[in-house]
Design a binder for these strands. Sequence first.
DNA 1: GCCAACGTTGGC
DNA 2: GCCAACGTTGGC
Length: 159
Amino acid sequence: MSPIWLLKTEPDAFSIDDLRDSKNATSGWDGVRNYQARNRLRDEMKAGDTVLIYHSSCAVPAIVGEAVVTSDPYPDPTQFDPASDGYDARSRQDHPRWYQADVQYVCHYPHPLTLKQIQHHPEFADMELVVRPRLSVQKVSERQLQLIRQMCQLVSATA
DNA sequence: GCCAACGTTGGC
DNA sequence: GCCAACGTTGGC
């Protein structure tokens, strides 16, 4: 079974609204600069995978909606761009260090699931968001996905 | 803005 | 390969 992903983003930098408003409602999920997150993205992410979008470092940290992976992983071009925050002088064109995948907007949740709700619900006690909050590419179980959709009053997403 | 957690770097 | 110093993340 393909994994369900939770991708963290700071809405001040790139929010789910920004994703929705991107061309074709699709954007490369660039800027992952952590090896564990990179390994997951590069080695396990596949086109068609379901994505939950999480807003961090903001007034109300929460899972705010869904997206879908629309490409297999490929090298993050910002690592080669000296003008980019994501620039990495150690990256070589023939040996990229950082990867990304394309992600397409699916929906906003009518009622985002706040971190506070997640922390207080026993079903989410073993969620990576709770146990390893800093990892920026997380996995969510099918059971947790269904519960998240229920709690956000979205029974079925059109993915 | 603070600070705890934790990932990365680099000297040895 | 160890580990201290340092940098970053992200909730509060």
